[in-house]
Simulated assay, not measured.
Amino acid sequence: MARAVAAEFRVPASVALAQAALESGWGHSDLAVQDHNLFGFKCSAAGPGPVAVGCRDHPTTECTPECHPASASFRVYDAPLSSFRDYGRVLTTSPYYASALPLRSDPNAFITEVAKKYATDPGYADKVIRLMREHDLYRVDAPLP
Rank of each mutant, 00 (worst) to 15 (best):
M1G: 01
M1W: 05
V5K: 07
V5Q: 10
A6D: 07
A6I: 04
A6T: 03
E8A: 15
F9A: 08
F9W: 15
R10M: 04
P12A: 01
P12Q: 04
A13Y: 02
A13G: 04
A16G: 13
A16C: 04
A21C: 06
E23S: 08
S24R: 03
S24K: 06
G25L: 06
G27L: 03
G27Q: 01
H28K: 14
H28A: 13
D30I: 00
A32Q: 03
V33A: 15
H36N: 15
L38I: 04
F39S: 11
G40H: 11
F41L: 15
K42Q: 15
C43P: 14
A46W: 14
G47N: 11
P48Q: 11
P48Y: 06
G49L: 10
P50C: 15
P50M: 13
V51R: 14
G54I: 10
D57I: 14
D57E: 15
P59M: 02
P59R: 14
P59K: 11
T60Y: 12
T61N: 11
C63W: 05
T64V: 13
T64N: 06
C67E: 08
H68S: 14
H68D: 03
A72N: 13
Y77E: 05
A79G: 05
L81H: 09
L81C: 01
S83L: 00
R85T: 07
R85W: 01
D86S: 05
Y87F: 09
R89C: 00
R89A: 00
V90F: 12
L91W: 02
T93F: 01
T93Q: 05
T93D: 02
S94E: 03
S94M: 01
Y97I: 11
A100L: 07
A100Q: 08
L101F: 02
P102D: 12
P102M: 10
R104P: 01
D106G: 08
P107F: 04
N108G: 05
F110V: 05
T112Q: 15
E113L: 03
E113K: 15
V114K: 11
K117L: 06
Y118E: 03
A119G: 10
D121H: 09
D121R: 06
G123N: 14
Y124D: 12
A125K: 10
V128M: 07
R130P: 00
L131E: 04
R133P: 00
D136P: 00
L137Y: 05
D141V: 05
A142T: 13
P143K: 08
L144P: 00
L144F: 08
P145H: 07
P145R: 06
P145N: 11
P145F: 07
